[in-house]
Write a protein that binds this DNA or RNA. Structure first.
Lengths: 342, 342
DNA sequence: TGATAAAATGTAAAGGCTTGCATTTTGTAA
DNA sequence: TTACAAAATGCAAGCCTTTACATTTTATCA
């Protein structure tokens, strides 16, 4: 039953329209470079035959695919999902398609995926964060595939990026927490070794502590993987260990929501007994009870601006450069002043 | 500075290894069809040159791209993000890459995206739900691109799909709600005209009502777009209009969470004054306060099974067929018995 | 009207890979 | 050894489009 008649080619269209393949090609790609009457004939032929150009041939001949690859840790994290959604919407408006791959936060998979997308002819790549083996950057350079880093803006990095200053944003939040009298502070963080964003947030808190005359080493840090459950477990560990903090920072909202749940289970009042602070401001944050104090990140804006930057480069050769967006603390119900007497 | 030396080709590798391009090609694609010693020579050459095959050329010559397109309404909805994540992980294990596009729930954009992905050489397509212009199915058939529908299993549909019976699942939930004495019921739904899942859920409730001897027409329905905010607005409309329901179904958890928030704002106690029921069981559901009674959908399982089905078709010609997975009610804090006296 | 410039179109050469078929090499059994 | 089958390899024809460059047509102006 598979009478898959061969798809019509440029040649078929040319034959039907009585012109050369070159003219058909121009009709499709540069309509204003061909005579109106000819164009009409050709367009009719294209419609009649239901022609659509062969991607592979086009890619090969044009040495470009109009495809941009995005490699993220996981789509299950709303922040990436949202950013990608905006990224893709913007790409679409300019005729580009997005290729997505995810790494489950594993560097070796990321490397594999980068090679895979480059192999697939991605014209450019979107990557999360700066941290990765320098070999990979060299590889991309050799292959001539530009890469744009997002979710991080680090003034000390030379690589182009679209993002916010994780460190400064966290410092701003932490300064306020300290101002509220908290001196005994903990952080539930993602792995800081392979994740520059997590590291920057950690250091951001320490910056604020130093500014407030506290020893940064006093920050109690526990690292765990992404997930509500993990946040809950980490929180329990912290609260059942010796010195109970009065404020618990979390590397992201998902961990914070886990902490919140754990607090409820342990009968620890939030924010009366302990303040909980998240990061990202995803929907979860507003829905949590009490609503989560967190740092609002403009995920959609980042995705969109990243798309525009890449398109500018690919279409007009505008060089990439660092673009900073801003993340701001939002104060909601989970943060209160530290009790004066312990 | 752009000394982009041309990427090495099969030919370069062949030269270096002292074999023909055909042998190199076979080394890459069918390693066991070439002599071990030859293979070693070739592999060394490949490594030395840092060769990776040209995608366009490969696609053209092989008439296949090892790429599967997925078209979803939006990545911002956790259910799709999660399903896609699983889908992509499974594809990756079999050497396929995923191409994603989103439609913002707009049929005309969906059509455009389908054409775009087919034009890009997708070997197969993943689509959400059955509803769409028959012309599109014809187009896909003409192009010889198989499509698999997910998120819906409808025994009356002939098209292959991987999904659950939205109608039956909702009936099961509604039966329980009715058993608890609720007689005055409302539904906040997504647009039912263009969305077969939403429609099935609506009918599912009506089925249960009919079973319980109630007039299905008594179901109060309000349609709105996806989003927490929209859920809140719809809920307020329902509760401030004349006849207050004692149970409000929501087409998905996001709407339900909005309803929950609105209830809190309006000072309506959940579940004492009104029960709220969601659908999907995303993280939000567990975090909500009280935790949301909802229908659990195995999103990841669907994504994964869809991937396997498509791979089976593409690699071994195993025909697609309907695969049913099951969605089950989960009872949490937002559902209680109707007050006996009104 | 003729000369010349500009616009439109055509020609044909890549571009890098796969694969059917032909040829050579290797292995096996008598 | 020889004969033959099987395995390995090579040859070369596509696959379909883009794009210099060449050629033809059309437009313009003196």
């Amino acid at each position: 039953m598979n009478f898959k008649r061969p798809t019509p080619t440029l040649h078929d269209v040319a034959l039907k329209a009585g012109v050369s393949t070159a003219t058909v090609s121009r009709c499709v790609n540069f309509p204003d470079r061909v005579n109106t009457r000819t164009r009409e004939k050709v367009m009719n032929a294209i419609n009649d035959l239901d022609y659509s150009p062969n991607f592979g041939a086009k890619a090969m001949a044009a040495r470009r695919t109009n495809t941009i690859g995005a490699i993220i840790p996981t789509m299950e994290n709303a922040i990436f999902a949202r950013g990608l959604q905006a990224f893709q919407e913007a790409l679409r408006l300019h005729g580009y398609t997005m290729l997505v791959a995810s790494t489950s936060y594993r560097p070796e998979i990321e490397e594999e995926q980068i090679r895979a997308l480059v192999g697939r002819g991605a014209d450019a790549l979107l990557l999360i964060g700066h941290d990765r083996d320098p070999e990979i950057y060299k590889f991309l350079e050799r292959q001539g595939v530009p890469a744009l880093v997002v979710w991080a803006y680090d003034p000390t990095e030379t690589r182009p990026s679209v993002g916010f200053n994780n460190r400064a944003a966290m410092t701003e939040m932490a300064a306020e927490v300290l101002r509220l009298g908290h001196r005994n502070i903990a952080l539930i963080s993602a792995n800081t070794e392979q994740n520059d964003r997590a590291r920057a947030r950690l250091v951001g808190i320490q910056d604020a502590m130093a500014d407030a005359g506290q020893d940064p080493a006093d920050l109690q840090v526990i690292e765990t993987a992404y997930g509500i459950e993990n946040g809950a477990i980490a929180f329990e560990q912290i609260m059942t260990a010796g010195r109970r903090p009065t404020a618990v920072f979390c590397g992201n909202d998902v961990l914070a929501v886990g902490a919140l749940r754990s607090a409820r289970e342990l009968g620890i009042a939030v924010p009366d007994d302990v303040s909980i602070i998240g990061f990202d401001d995803i929907e979860l944050a507003q829905v949590a009870d009490p609503p989560l104090t967190t740092v609002h990140v403009p995920h959609r804006a980042m995705g969109q601006r990243a798309a525009l930057a890449l398109i500018g480069l690919l279409q007009n050769g505008e060089p990439l450069h660092a673009i900073e967006v801003f993340a701001k603390p939002v104060f909601r119900g989970t943060l209160a002043a530290a009790k004066t007497a312990q």
